[in-house]
Amino acid sequence: MDAGAVSALELEGVSYQYPGEAFDIVDNLSLRVEKGSFHCIVGASGCGKSTIFRLINGLLPLKAGAIRIGGVPAGTGKGACGYMPQKDLLFPWRTVWENVALPLEIQGGCSKRERRERAQAALEDAGLPGCGDKMPQELSGGMRQRAAFARTMLTGSDLLLLDEPFSALDFLTRISMQEWLLSQWQRHQKTILFITHDVEEALFLSSSVLAVESTPIRALREIPVPAAFPRDRSCLKDPELVELKERLIAHLRKQVTP
């Protein structure tokens, strides 16, 4: 990693303990994420992956340690990270563009017309031209996720935290959304952290996989993915990747107690 430049995200000795639990689920975790990278965090369900996100976006208070986003301590700037949860959480009483403009509305300093224009532009960019005046209920699952992504983009943050955004989609929609997300990432030069428990998804998307070794989380093992961008799905058939996938699955299965 590039040590000289400012990292997109830095975790330094971060610990967190859920109230009522005897141990720290995140224990003295350190991590550096360089700018413009795409990392997938993989781990068994319930291992604490999402807890890391909730610490970074400030929904949970740190027990110890420090988090810096783009060199600035987390929690000081408004909307320092663009967080996109598993559910699209589009508000059903707002039109699509009003949903997408929510981060601008909270940050303030934008007229309604300006917000509308920027939201429509973000929607168009996400592949949803002309959908702004619809209600969220009129969109399909994939379209709703794209709208949620457009909303995340309007936080203006360079760091995007995507927490299993495609896990509720059917298989065919999911793979086209993965390709779509890669193209968005390449175009916008954002830093993306992406949580998933789907190993294939992780390998296809990320420049390197961050595997959760154990719960409590003390370290994330960085495993580079030997495939160049831009990618298409055929790279998943590459023997090297097939082998890596099997190794990761075997590794993750050790943590699952059925």
Binding site: N57, G58, Y83, L89, I106, Q107, T155
Partner: peptide, 14 residues
Amino acid sequence: AKTEMAELLRTYGA
């Protein structure tokens, strides 16, 4: 009102 919605707005700084 869903807590997840409120949390999302909190990450925007609401």
